[in-house]
């Protein structure tokens, strides 16, 4: 890469120089021409030295991690699953990355106004819009053990029955899942779920 750049610069400079020198009419300009040739040479050498003094490009990771919803027993899945207040549920998904996974987080928030983050490919059938009274908000973050390129979550998550205000609002919620790899690439996926009291 780096050597390629030097070549490009050199070739360009050469072309420019040739053109410039040819188009000169007056004899006196040949002096400049020769002088400039030297100058160019000097500049090329200077550039080459500086540019090549840095290390070679190392391989960098430009691949994002991925979320796999297709594993058996994946939960929750978009538009079809219901999570019940006061009950634990098994959060089960597969994360993969080409180099090393980082961590992941879950964010549960209401979607009563039908406007929230939505990254699912299909739109769920939602209840009519309503104003939240005591909507549930749940946020959690988790680390993934070092050195993994594949990780299946198997965390029992529990949702409280109520808070100090009282019972939570039932209805449409969003389940936002985000995963990173060690390099900081991230993938997020929002899915629509229902939350209710059993």
């Amino acid at each position: 890469m780096v050597t390629g750049d030097i070549q490009t610069i050199s070739i360009l400079t050469f072309i420019i120089n040739t053109i410039a020198c040819r188009s000169d009419r007056a004899y006196t300009f040949y002096f400049f021409c020769i002088m400039k040739n030297k100058l160019y040479l000097y500049l090329i050498v200077l550039f080459s030295v500086i540019v090549s003094s840095c290390e070679k490009d190392e391989e960098i990771d430009t691949t994002k991690p991925a979320i796999d919803f297709s594993i058996s027993g994946a939960f929750p899945t978009s538009c079809s699953d219901t999570v019940y207040f006061g009950e634990p549920f098994a959060f089960r998904l597969k994360f993969t990355d080409n180099v090393e996974l980082g961590s992941y987080s879950i964010d549960i928030h209401h979607n009563f106004d039908h406007h929230s983050h939505s990254t699912e490919a299909v739109e769920c059938n939602l209840d009519p819009k309503k104003d939240p009274v005591n909507a549930y908000t749940g946020i959690a973050d988790f680390t993934i053990p070092d050195g993994r390129t594949e990780y299946i979550t198997d965390d029992p998550l529990s949702i409280p029955l109520s808070n100090t205000i009282g019972q939570f609002d039932e209805g449409d919620y969003h389940f936002l899942i985000r995963v990173t790899d060690k390099e900081g690439w991230s993938t997020s996926y929002g899915i629509g779920i229902r939350m209710a009291y059993r």
Binding site: G102, S103, Y104, S105, I106, D107, I139, A140, D141, F142, L176, R178, T180, D181, K182, E183, G184, W185, S186
Partner: peptide
């Protein structure tokens, strides 16, 4: 601004 591999619940509300 460098994106890390971490998430933060309390201050970052589950964001990277």
């Amino acid at each position: 601004l460098n994106p890390s591999s971490e998430f933060d619940r309390l201050y970052g509300n589950g964001n990277q």
